[in-house]
Amino acid sequence: MSGWLTSVIALVVGDREADRVVPPTGFTATLTVFTSAAMAFLAVFALALSLATDRLADRWAAELARTSTLRISAPAGQLGPQTEAALRLLETTPGVASARALTTEEQRDLLTPWFGAELPLETLPIPQLIEIVEEGDGYDPTGLRARLQAEVPGAVLDDHTRWREPLVEAASRLRGLGIVSLVLIGGATAAMITLAAQAALAANAQVIRVLRLVGAQDAYIARAFVRRFTLRAMAGAAIGMLAGLLGILLLPRADIAGGFLTGLGFRGTGWLLPLLIPPLAGVVAFFATRSAALRSLKEQS
C-alpha cells in the first residue's frame, strides 16, 4: 500500500494518542484556520462568478441569437412607406415569428441615456428600427438581405452577430477568470498551509527530537502534523464557505436590481457546489502538509 494511501486511512481513522504528541496551541493553528477560511470565502465568490458568467453567456447567446434589428434610413417622406414595405416583407419571410416597428417612445428611451430626456426626436433624422423575433431555425440572413436590397433600399439588417460574439467571448473569459481564480486560491491555500506546517515543524523541533529518540518513524511524526493541519484547514474552509454563502445570500436579487453583478449567485443544485470547498481544502492541506512534513523531517535528520 502506498504511503499516502496509508496516511489517508490514518487520517480518517485517527489516533487520539498520536494526535496529542504535537502541542495543541500555536500561531500556526490560527494562521491555518484563518487562511483556509479566507480562501474558502474567496472561493465561494469565484465559484459564484464562474457559474454566473456561465449562465450569462448562455442567456446572452440565446437572447441575441433569437432577435435581430432592421434599421431603415430614408428621407422623411419615404420612411413610412419603406417601414410598411419592410414589415410586409418580413411577414412572409420563413423563420420570422414576428416583426414590429419600435414606437417613437421606445426609440426615445433607447437614445435617452446618450442625449437626455428632452430630445426632440421628431426634428431629427432618426432611422426607424424594426425588431425581428425568430422562430425555429431562424431566417436565412443572406436571402433576407438580398430581398431587402431590392424592395427596401434604405434597410440595413443587423442579426446581432457582431454584438453576440464579443459578449459571449467576454462571458467565456470571465468564466475562465473564475476558474483561474479557483486554481490560484487552491495554490495560495497550499502555499500558506505549507508555510504554516513548516513553521510548526520548526517550532516543534524538540518534539520531533523526542519522538525520534523513542523510535517514531517519519510517517508517524508526519501523520501527527498532517491530521491536525488537514482538520484545521477543513474547519477553516467550512467557516469561510458559510460566510461566503451568507455573503451571496445577502446580495441584492437579480430580478429586483437587474445587472450582472447582482446576478452573482447560485441556482438550484449549484448551491451544493460550495459544499465541496471544505473537503477540497482538506485534500490540499493533506498533500501540502504531508509533503512539507516529510521534506522537513528529511532535512532535520
Partner: peptide
C-alpha cells in the same frame, strides 16, 4: 514532551510504535 503528563511521556515509545 512538556505538554503531556508524565504517564503519557513514559508510554510514548509504545504509542509511537
Amino acid at each position: 514532551l512538556d505538554h503531556l503528563p508524565v504517564s503519557e511521556n513514559v508510554a510514548l515509545p509504545l504509542t509511537a510504535s
